[in-house]
């Protein structure tokens, strides 16, 4: 149970659906106890990768070991030690909240008393004890997601896989879920998640890979990625005029790098305030100016030329 033990080892991993190549040769190592993220836009190949690691979708090429086993041959053995929280809810809407946990635990070969004990603990953990008897179809999106997380923990998994865990949730529901995931991480559960939210990646991940069009374009801790692929600060400028390109040429020299977005200009520099000041001194008057720290969004923009959220 050393900290260096690799739970997932992928080399040159590929997945094709007919002529479409969703995953085009990725190398990933996930170690026990870490929180590892796949960050990328929709359609980047994150979910396909997750499905291969979860041993429900055979790889089209490359090698993949999960918990030291081959997902193609040892699917049931691997899945018995994983927890999977899919992007779309897969709860049984005809059953109650508690029944969903009870029947699911039995799929792992757990006894009825054991499942009942764990179900009650997990309902408390995700703060759903008072809704135990409610039908799933009566739950809001946030409550359903919490129930899905509880269900994915019924077998006390060594690694919990979450595909876009907070997509579609309101801010309060997101923060509650993040808090629960953070607790799991503290307890030593390995987390593997995909997200296209940079704040989620920054909050939860020790290490992540940026994935785009089926390939990994960068890898590291959130802080390290920002250090390596962006400046310390960003000055965001909005001009009323449509002449962003023209303005861009005039202020190009003020930062290390400049991005032209449809609605604003981003100037990357160690000192954002200095850029803002220089813009004003140069006789330009942007409608709004915002100086902020670089985020993973900036890393992604720099690496791919596109923003994360469409």
């Amino acid at each position: 149970m050393g900290g260096d033990e690799a739970l997932v080892e992928a080399r040159g991993l590929r997945k094709s659906y007919g002529a479409v190549e969703a995953v085009r040769g990725i190398d990933v190592t996930v170690r026990r106890g870490e929180a590892f993220g796949f960050l990328g836009p929709n359609g980047a190949g994150k979910s396909s990768t997750m499905r291969m690691i979860a041993a429900v979708s055979p790889p089209s090429g490359g090698t993949l070991r999960v918990l030291g086993m081959d997902p193609t041959d040892d699917g049931p053995a691997i899945r018995s030690r994983l927890g999977v929280c899919p992007q779309e809810d897969t709860l049984d809407s005809e059953l109650t909240v508690r029944e969903n946990l009870l029947v699911y635990g039995r799929f792992f070969g757990l006894s009825r008393p054991e499942v009942a004990r764990r179900a009650d603990e997990l309902l408390a953990f995700v703060q759903l004890s008072d809704r135990a008897g409610a039908r799933v179809e009566q739950l809001s999106g946030g409550l359903k997601r919490r129930l899905t997380v509880a269900r994915s923990l019924i077998n006390e998994p060594e690694m919990l896989m979450l595909d876009e865990p907070t997509t579609g949730l309101d801010p309060q529901a997101r923060h509650l879920l993040w808090d629960r995931l953070f607790r799991l991480k503290q307890q030593g559960t390995t987390l593997l998640l995909t997200t296209h939210y940079m704040d989620e990646a920054e909050q939860l991940c020790d290490r992540l890979v940026v994935i785009d069009e089926g390939v990994i374009v960068a890898e590291g801790s959130p802080a390290q990625l920002i250090r390596d692929h962006s400046s310390r600060e960003v000055c965001e400028l909005r001009f009323g005029a449509d002449d962003h390109q023209g303005v861009a040429e005039r202020i190009q020299h003020l930062g290390e790098r400049l991005e032209v977005l449809p609605d604003r200009l981003l100037v990357y520099a160690a000192d954002g305030e200095a850029v803002a000041q220089a813009v004003h001194e140069g006789g330009l008057t942007p409608r709004s100016t915002l100086v902020r720290r670089s985020t993973l969004e900036d890393v992604f923009l720099h690496l791919t030329g596109r923003s994360l959220a469409e």
Partner: peptide, 14 residues
Amino acid sequence: WDKTYFAMIASPLR
């Protein structure tokens, strides 16, 4: 709709 089969195959069931 419910996608319950997908939940089932995420467990040891094939």
